[in-house]
Design a binder for these strands. Structure first.
Lengths: 163, 163
DNA sequence: GTTATTGCAAAGGCTTTGCACACTT
DNA sequence: AAGTGTGCAAAGCCTTTGCAATAAC
């Protein structure tokens, strides 16, 4: 389990109340070793308490994401997936043919962050990037010269209070 | 207008029929100088012919995306956005505070593509990447030390026939 | 006590799907 | 002629929202 207490403190520092629901949801996220959908998180939360509503889960996840406590990413399952943000972050290589997912370190993105910032002034935030493409197995698997994946990654940012 | 004819040829090469609808949608995409949602594309298509159904637009966009003729990206407007794929591709810096969008060249991603491929065997496909973060104006605009953007990028790949 | 949060239930919005008919090849 | 592609209409699915009741501070 991750530093649950520290996370709760952070939430509190932002002026938010620590409700039972939020504590449980945070705890669930900490116990989770990987990304999960709101629905999945809701199910796991129900193991502790069964009276936490799915909408509350959604609202809490949204808040935690806004605080950069968790990442929200769409890995291609048709729904958002959430995960406690690592320090440093990690990313994923997602094969659009077989669906396999492999981890990718942050180094490259750290370098890119610096480079982009220096050259443009824009400060990128690579929290949890899904990198779509074709894995080596699928490339060698005979389909290497076919339509190639038949998929293009797309990305979704968050709703955001805009100044 | 882009090379509409060449694109139609590509579509045909993949064994697909060139229907009036597809031709018009392709033409509309070519005329488009930037990404647009299915709905927006549908509206522009209606300028040519008003009897093209929105579901047809969706189906066509999905197909063109599978062929890597167009990119599908979620820039944060709550819907997918489509655009003819450039060669080389271009990407975007999207400020999660003010919503501004700036272009970003492909060079960095080309380098990352090569590096990732060499080291992992995975072949990334960076067709049209939305890079979320905070623009320099917003950073300097007094909110630099606040909760910082309150948003985390997420990404979505496509449905895909998996082998 | 105040005010932020939650549960419940319903709505929302984008996208997908079934099916009969039409059109491309 | 054969079979893909389309229009129409309805459903799907994840996510959001309104509001009164509840609980944190």
């Amino acid at each position: 389990m991750r530093e649950l207490q520290a996370l709760m403190d952070r939430v509190r520092e932002y002026g938010w109340r620590i409700t039972r629901q939020r504590a449980i949801i945070l705890q669930t996220l900490c116990e989770l070793d990987r990304h999960a959908s709101a629905e999945e998180i809701h199910e796991r939360v129900a193991l502790h308490r069964r009276d936490v509503d799915l909408s509350t889960v959604y609202r809490t996840l949204e808040s935690l994401r806004d605080l950069h406590i968790i990442s929200q990413t769409d890995l291609g399952r048709g729904c958002a997936e959430f995960e406690i943000l690592d320090e440093p972050p990690h990313h994923h290589l997602i094969c659009t043919r077989c669906g396999s997912i492999h981890d990718l370190g942050h180094d490259r993105f750290e370098a890119m962050t610096v480079a982009i910032h220096q050259e443009t002034g824009f400060f990128p935030r690579f929290d949890h990037v899904p990198v779509f493409g074709v894995c080596s197995a699928c490339r060698q698997g005979g389909r290497a010269n076919s339509v190639e994946g038949t998929a293009v990654p797309r990305s979704v940012p968050n709703k955001e209070e805009q100044t």
